[in-house]
Structure formats: structure tokens, C-alpha cells
Design a binder for these strands. Structure first.
Lengths: 225, 225
DNA sequence: GAGTGTCTCAAACGTATGTTTCAAACAGAC
DNA sequence: GTCTGTTTGAAACATACGTTTGAGACACTC
């Protein structure tokens, strides 16, 4: 074979195992035995385990980042001069992730789970890699959010964006487990698309909540001070 | 010394390191050297690394669970026959965690971060341990949430609770870092109490958002199917 | 078909991990 | 003081990890 498929087999296996178990909990030997390739192939083709992790992310993040840029372009064009609304911005992001070209049926779930892990697991090298490779669509999203919520103070907006990120990353990073729990308890099946469909209204409502400082009940022991 | 403080020193060090780095990324040798105790002390006092993880959780979860039960008791008593509202329920939980007896100033952040990790890192033994030890206050909270949101279907409510958990665990677990970023960018100081003050309205608004299935924009490519 | 660069393979390397061992130190009771 | 049960200490254990090695197989060029 001229161009070996070993690289792809490794990436496929690594992607799935990383998503299932996390990075440090997945050994190269698990990956190579699942991919049915030799152990040394990983270091031959990628150089190191960290570089393999980067490659796994790059394989889906590069096309996703392109799709997202395009979605933002269309959105801003469609809106003309007035800035896109919060709902439109969130849906542009959601649709981009859902309509991504998928390698298999688990595509989105793995994609989301990996993104969640990237935030959650404190892998310094990964964060650095993602920041310097994909900072542009990220800050563009932030800019759109700012335009869509002019009524919020910078501080309020900052914290609410963190809340959104948290709800998304956390839910997606354990979406398999959560889906299974729900499946066992109620027999209801839930696709990742449906989770996203439920998540966006939740986030939008939270972002647009009333002034946060007025809500503690009168008898609360917490002072605003 | 009659009752050694080795146990507590190990628990303190383990708690902090686990919260900083996760479970598999923290070795017993890191813990014992931070705690300035012998390596074998962990296995002597706790039996295994997994048992140590359980002990770390039990040390703050047991008193917290008691505080929470009490807060729920007071809440339900105060409300008489009608069920507590969503805001009241959320505030009862928030105040319980904020007013927890804290070992140090990082108390709440570590507490939240560990809870988030427990959900995120796929440590089967931990989930099993937490479920069989602390299922009661958890399901009581769930019951209160159910009563406070009768308009939601069971499935909607399930997912929205996950979103709340995520926003909370994620934000609180990285509250130190997030506070510092905000401090550097805007010069604004934020206490954990203030984060909670901002978080609760966000969550309440998200929980009470309009029917999630009606919100995708008209030109959306996503079908509700 | 000899030569060349690419890739695979089994084996080993060095290091780090969780756990165990066993002697020494310590405490409190008699 | 001596004994007894508990706790600490340094060292070793077995295992798993990421990585490296060097010989072999393969496809291709000239």
C-alpha cells in the first residue's frame, strides 16, 4: 500500500478511546491493540502520545473551524447592518457542530465529548495547542456574543459566558453516561442533536435573565455587600 | 500523639492535589510528599488509592449532606403546604454550600471542583460510592426541583438539571482561574459568594425557559423530527 | 535485480506507578 | 521496666507506562 491506513486506524481508535476514558486513562497499548497495529507505529507516525492527542483534535477541529467561519459569515451577511441576535448566534454554532461531516454515527458525540475533556482535563499542552491553532473562531464567537447582549455589563457577560461554557462542556463531556442513565430510568432515547436542541434555549434564557443582584429571597443569609 | 494527624495531612494534600490535577494524574507520591508523610502511610490508613479518594469525598460530603438536609427541612417547614419555589430551592442549596464549615479559604472552590471531577472523570468506583452513600439528599433535591417545575416534562427537567450541574461545577471548579482573568482584564474583584449570586438567576432563568422545541429559527437546517 | 526509502514488527529500555514488606519507633497499660 | 498494639520508615516489589531500538519486510526507482 502506497499510503498506509495505519495512521487513520490509530486516529480512529484513539479518538474513540480518548472520548470514552479520557487521555491519561487511555494507554498507547490500548489504542494500538484496538487499531490492530504495532505499538511502535504511534511513535513512528506521530512522535509522541501528546502529538497523537493533538492530531486527533486537529482532524475534526480544522474542518469544524472552517464550517463555523462560514456559518458566521452567512449569519452576518444575512443580518446586514444590525448584529445577529443571541439566538441566531447560538444556533449558528450549534448547527455547525451538528452538521459536521461525520466519520460514523457516533461522530458528534465523540466530538463534543472530546471538546468537553479538553476543557475539563488539565492537559496544559492541549490547551496551549488549541489556543494557538483555533483562537480565531473562538474570539469571533465572543465578539458576536458581546454584540448580541449589549444590555449586559462586561462583568455580567463574562460570568454568564462561563456558565454557558460550563453547562455545555460538562453535559457534552458526559453525554454518553447521562444518556445511558436516562435510557435506563425512562426508556427514552436521546440523540446528541436533541441535547443541543434543549441546551440552546436554556443557555439563551440564562444569558438574558433579569438583573442578577435582585433575586435572593428576603430572608437570605447572603448579603450582596 | 495519641490520634495521629497523619490521616488529616494526607486528606488535606490529596484533596488539594485531586482538585488541581484530577485523580489519575495525581500519584500517591505527590500526595505523601506534599503532606510530608511516608508513602506507605496511605495504604496503611486507607488501604488503597481508591479508598483514599472515597475518604476525601466523605470528609466534606457527609457534613454538607447534613447541612443540606437541615436547610431543606427549614425550607419545607417555612413553606407550609405549598411546595418551595425554584428560586427558594436553589438558594437553599447555594447557602448550604457557601455556609459550609470550611477548612480554608479555598473550601468551596475545591468542593465544587471535586464534585465536577466525580461526574466527569470516568471513575466507576467513585460514582458507585457516591450513589450508595449520598443518594438521599440528592434525590430529595431532585424531588424539590420536580415540584418547583411542574410545567416541565421529565425528560426536559432531567437535561436542564444536567445543564445546571455543569454550569455550577465548571464555574466553581475553575473559579480561582476565572476570577484572576477577570481581575487582570477589568480590575474587578469577585468573591465566590458573588459568583453564586450571579449563577442562581442564570440557572433559574434557564430552568424556566420556554418550550425548547420551538426556538430554532425558521431557516434552521435542523429538523425537530 | 540491486539499491533505497518507507513502514512494520518483536523486543527491550528506563521510568513511574500502586502496593507490600518488615524492622524500628512509639504509645499506653500493667 | 516490660509488654502489646499501633504507627512510621526505608526499601523493595511487581506491573504498567511511553519511548527507543534494530532487524526485517515491502514497494518503488534506476
Amino acid at each position: 500500500m502506497a499510503q498506509s491506513d495505519t495512521v487513520d486506524r490509530i486516529l480512529d481508535a484513539a479518538e474513540e478511546l480518548f472520548a470514552e476514558r479520557g487521555f491519561s486513562e487511555t494507554s498507547l497499548r490500548m489504542i494500538t491493540s484496538k487499531a490492530k497495529v504495532n505499538l511502535a507505529a504511534v511513535n513512528y507516525h506521530f512522535g509522541s502520545k501528546n502529538a497523537l492527542i493533538h492530531a486527533v483534535f486537529a482532524r475534526f477541529l480544522t474542518p469544524f473551524s472552517a464550517t463555523l467561519e462560514q456559518a458566521f459569515d452567512e449569519l452576518e451577511e444575512r443580518c446586514g447592518d444590525h448584529p445577529p441576535t443571541l439566538n441566531e448566534t447560538l444556533w449558528a454554532l450549534t448547527e455547525s457542530s451538528i452538521r459536521m461531516p461525520q466519520r460514523n454515527e457516533k461522530g458528534i458525540a465523540i466530538f463534543m465529548r472530546l471538546l468537553g475533556l479538553a476543557y475539563t482535563q488539565s492537559q496544559g499542552h492541549l490547551r496551549k495547542f488549541l489556543e494557538q491553532e483555533y483562537s480565531e473562531p473562538f474570539s469571533r464567537f465572543m465578539r458576536l456574543l458581546k454584540q448580541a447582549t449589549p444590555q449586559l455589563s462586561a462583568v455580567d457577560r463574562y460570568w454568564r459566558i462561563q456558565f454557558m461554557l460550563g453547562a455545555t462542556a460538562f453535559t457534552m463531556s458526559s453525554s454518553d453516561a447521562l444518556r445511558d442513565i436516562l435510557q435506563n430510568k425512562t426508556g427514552v432515547e436521546t440523540s446528541v442533536q436533541e441535547i443541543a436542541l434543549r441546551l440552546v434555549p436554556f443557555l439563551a434564557a440564562g444569558m438574558q435573565a433579569e438583573n442578577p443582584m435582585l433575586t435572593p429571597p428576603l430572608d437570605s443569609k447572603i448579603s450582596v455587600a
